[in-house]
Design a protein around this nucleic acid. Structure first.
Lengths: 246, 246
DNA sequence: CATGATTTGTCCGTATGTATG
DNA sequence: GCATACATACGGACAAATCAT
């Protein structure tokens, strides 16, 4: 409380724009007010408006074209894999103002398959939990995630946790087990049966499938997951060579 | 190519800093010159230096602390495998003993689309080359790659190069332009028309689609690509968090 | 096709506030 | 307290890209 809750003007301008988008008054492809218009509206200068815009460009919210204007970018149907940090894509989307809901499809326990024993380094007799959730971003079904969780951890998950938080956050905040490493694999496949139904796509529609294991600091596998993404979803990534040494 | 060699001052400042880091004169944790110092060095104002810094902050190259200074951030990612290093898929496969051949489907020039101008930062009148190749791994058609190459580079590519080498290797070995950064996006789609034929899969079969831009050391876009992979192909990745201080 | 209005891109110079050591 | 460094903001200027007329 020692600090005043001062909000920089350029942040207030960003919030104004994000609100306009969230409220639907600005949609994909629409032109935003110009720099002079916003400068006048907020009683400031173009430089400040430009700064507000610049960050939103970096976050992929808007695109700008000289001589033309500033436009709302396509909706955030993407999950950046920022290889410099292990963050769940929920966090990354939340940074951009998206609203994420979960719809729990199944949460129960069973005996692990040999594949699951291998992936999670389980003892044979240890039961595991299965958690199937639909991830809904800003009202749209985006993906179906299937998780296999060791009994030890699964027993401690409450209904509230699994309805509201990403697995990353549950592991970190509730269990004190931050995810330090993700090993995964991405491939294409077709939606069939239950998966097609739950994603609300036609059977035979293409889906992006991501298999992964979340690992803790000591390289212990924490959770195995399989996520199915609709065709209109994409995963963004950046790979960069180290500049140092050499 | 003479008229428009203008490089914004803030970009030149960024390149200066990136060079200092690449050359090892600045390492992880080192303090960079301050805003006034750089402003003086480049005969500009603090505002311009601040803008140069701001983008590097967003890209994770530096961190800034008010009252303290600007510091070189920890190396972005330490992922030991796969995507964390900038290698082409060819190299990764070759490591495992696979034999890679290319079958050139098309190599011609055309005027760039607006999308290509945007992605490659082209001038409008500059023609670009299109290179379509099938990647054949151990006798099996694995993927179709479509590349868009600025005329300047495309004109220097010989038939032998494009029949035998990955784009990464051509850029590095033949043009002295190593790829230091890849920005891409992965999604699922269906094979249709020419793509299905060339991949030798049924129309409607799922394919993995990867869009990307290869960038050089100074962040200039070199090549834009779109690759289509058959259903049985998968992309492995590892993301790992650095353990360091905080 | 030319031209002017609009819009963003870049840059200058100045000023004040806040955090750090 | 003090100097240094970054954070935010003001106001003005010209250039380049775009688009409607």
């Amino acid at each position: 409380m020692s600090q005043q809750d001062f909000v920089p003007l350029y942040v207030r301008i960003q919030r104004y724009l994000l609100d306009e988008i969230a409220a639907g008054r600005l949609s994909e492809g629409d032109r935003t007010p110009s720099e002079p218009e916003l400068a006048s509206k907020f009683a400031t200068t173009r430089a400040t408006v430009a700064k507000a815009f610049q960050q939103l460009v970096y976050e992929g919210v808007i695109v700008r074209r000289a001589g033309s204007g500033t436009f709302v970018a396509r909706p955030a149907m993407s999950a950046p894999i920022d290889l410099s940090r292990v963050r769940s894509f929920e966090e990354q989307l939340a940074d951009r103002g998206a609203i994420i809901d979960y719809e729990v499809v199944a949460f129960d326990s069973h005996m692990p398959t040999p594949l699951e024993i291998e992936a999670l380094h389980l003892r044979k007799a240890e039961t595991v939990f299965r958690l199937d959730r639909l991830r809904v971003v800003s009202g749209e079904r985006m993906s179906l995630e299937r998780r296999v969780i060791p009994g030890e951890l699964g027993r401690r998950m409450t209904p509230i946790m699994i309805r509201t938080k990403s697995i990353h956050r549950i592991l970190d905040e509730d269990f004190g087990l931050p995810v330090l490493r993700v090993e995964g694999s991405i491939r294409a496949g077709v939606a069939k049966g239950a998966i097609a139904d739950q994603l609300a796509v036609k059977r035979g529609a293409p889906v992006l499938i991501r298999d992964y294991v979340l690992l803790s600091a000591d390289r212990r596998p924490l959770v195995r997951g399989e996520s199915f993404y609709r065709e209109d979803f994409h995963i963004d990534y950046v790979v960069q060579q180290e500049l140092r040494d050499r």
